[in-house]
Simulated scan of single mutants.
Amino acid sequence: MFSFRSPSFATRTLSRVCQQPISAYRVAAPAARSLLTRHFASLEQNPSSSPKRFAHTSASKAPEDSYIKNNLERHASLKDKIVDLGKFIDSCELCMVTTAKGNPPALVSRWFLKLIHNTCFCNFQEQAGVSLIFHTNTQSTKTEHLKDDPRVNISFLKGERGEWASISGDASVVTDRETIHKYYSSTLKPWFGDLDDGVHDGGPDDPRIGVIRVKTTQAAYAIVGDGMLGKDASQFTGSAKDVPRINKLRLLTKEELQEWRDANGTA
C-alpha cells in the first residue's frame, strides 16, 4: 500500500487536474492517478528519497520513554503481577470490551457492568486467574464479530486514582448449559427480559444467554501505591528530573501467561 509521504507532489498533480476544464476531467483524472501511483511506487522502492518525519528512524536507537523508565516494575514476581491484576479488576465497576467488525476491520467497543461480585461482568479467577468470563446475548452483534475474529481487548479504568488495565486475548462463545448454570445470576433477567413464550424468560435455560471466555494473551496495567502521584501527575510543578513515581506499571507477556498456566495445570 502506498503512503502519502510527498504532499507537495500530490498537491501539484491534483492542482494540475483541477485547473483543467470540466470537459477534460475524464481524461485528466486517470492521468493524475497514474502519475501519483508511479510516484508513490518509486518512494516505496527508494525510501531514502522520502522526507524524514521523525527524529528517530529506528525504535532501537530511540531513547527509552521516561515514563516507562521511571514506573515499569521490571522485577515484580509473576505471582504478584497476576494476583494484583485480579484484585484491580475485581475492584472495577465496569469495563470496555472491543471487538473487530468487517473486512477491513473496524473496532467496536461496548461497556460491561459488574452486577454482582464476580458475576455477569467477569470472573478473573477462571483458569488460575488468566481468563475472563462475561455473559452475553448469543443474538448480539458482538457474538457475530467473534465468529469472524476472536481477538478482543478489554480495558478497565479507575479514573479517581489514575489506575488502568488493558488486556488482549482470544475469545470464544460458550453455550453449554453446564457452563451457563455455573455463572448464571438472577440479576441477568432485566437485561434479557421475558418474551412470555416459556423459553426466553431470562432464566438459566434461556438459549439467548451465553458466556464469552477470553483467554488472555498479554496485559498491561498500572496501579498506584503509597507516595505515588497517580492521576495527580499533571499537577506536579517541580523539576522534570525529580518527578516521583506515578504508578506501578506492569506487563504480562504471552510467555509469562503460559508459564503461569503450565505451573497451575490449566490449558
Score class of each variant (00 low, 15 high):
residue 248 K to A: 14
residue 231 K to G: 07
residue 17 V to C: 05
residue 33 R to W: 11
residue 121 F to N: 03
residue 120 C to G: 02
residue 46 N to L: 12
residue 188 L to E: 05
residue 186 S to Q: 14
residue 82 I to Y: 06
residue 208 R to F: 09
residue 235 Q to G: 11
residue 158 K to G: 02
residue 261 R to N: 08
residue 75 H to I: 06
residue 105 P to A: 15
residue 23 S to W: 07
residue 158 K to P: 03
residue 161 R to S: 02
residue 210 G to S: 10
residue 90 D to V: 06
residue 218 Q to G: 04
residue 224 V to Q: 06
residue 142 K to H: 00
residue 199 V to E: 03
residue 193 G to Q: 13
residue 61 K to M: 12
residue 17 V to K: 02
residue 100 A to Q: 10
residue 51 P to H: 12
residue 36 L to P: 03
residue 106 A to R: 15
residue 168 S to P: 08
residue 133 I to D: 03
residue 101 K to F: 13
residue 137 N to E: 01
residue 201 D to L: 06
residue 37 T to M: 11
residue 110 R to T: 01
residue 236 F to V: 02
residue 166 S to P: 01
residue 266 T to C: 14
residue 187 T to N: 10
residue 55 A to H: 07
residue 43 L to G: 04
residue 75 H to G: 03
residue 200 H to P: 10
residue 183 Y to Q: 09
residue 136 T to V: 08
residue 2 F to M: 02
residue 68 I to C: 08
residue 198 G to S: 08
residue 93 E to W: 09
residue 70 N to E: 11
residue 162 G to M: 07
residue 5 R to D: 15
residue 173 V to P: 06
residue 136 T to H: 01
residue 125 Q to A: 11
residue 64 E to W: 05
residue 138 T to W: 09
residue 93 E to R: 04
residue 18 C to W: 06
residue 236 F to Y: 14
residue 51 P to D: 12
residue 241 K to V: 14
residue 113 L to A: 00
residue 211 V to I: 15
residue 39 H to A: 11
residue 119 T to E: 04
residue 208 R to A: 00
residue 57 T to C: 04
residue 36 L to T: 10
residue 79 K to C: 15
residue 98 T to N: 00
residue 246 I to V: 15
residue 182 K to F: 13
residue 17 V to G: 02
residue 18 C to H: 07
residue 103 N to M: 07
residue 125 Q to S: 13
residue 154 I to E: 02
residue 168 S to R: 03
residue 33 R to T: 06
residue 264 N to C: 13
residue 233 A to Q: 05
residue 7 P to R: 14
residue 93 E to I: 00
residue 119 T to H: 14
residue 105 P to E: 07
residue 145 H to R: 01
residue 156 F to C: 09
residue 100 A to W: 01
residue 159 G to N: 07
residue 260 W to A: 05
residue 26 R to D: 08
residue 137 N to V: 02
residue 69 K to I: 12
residue 63 P to L: 08
residue 13 T to H: 14
residue 167 I to E: 02
residue 7 P to Y: 08
residue 159 G to M: 05
residue 102 G to C: 01
residue 133 I to A: 01
residue 221 Y to N: 03
residue 5 R to P: 09
residue 140 S to A: 07
residue 104 P to W: 07
residue 202 G to V: 05
residue 176 D to V: 00
residue 128 A to L: 09
residue 120 C to E: 04
residue 151 R to E: 09
residue 254 K to G: 10
residue 52 K to W: 03
residue 181 H to V: 15
residue 150 P to V: 00
residue 155 S to L: 01
residue 265 G to I: 12
residue 164 W to P: 07
residue 219 A to C: 11
residue 102 G to I: 10
residue 193 G to F: 05
residue 214 V to Q: 07
residue 75 H to L: 13
residue 62 A to E: 01
residue 123 N to H: 02
residue 66 S to T: 15
residue 32 A to F: 10
residue 216 T to P: 04
residue 118 N to S: 03
residue 91 S to A: 13
residue 25 Y to H: 15
residue 73 E to R: 08
residue 238 G to K: 04
residue 164 W to D: 00
residue 117 H to Q: 15
residue 44 E to Y: 11
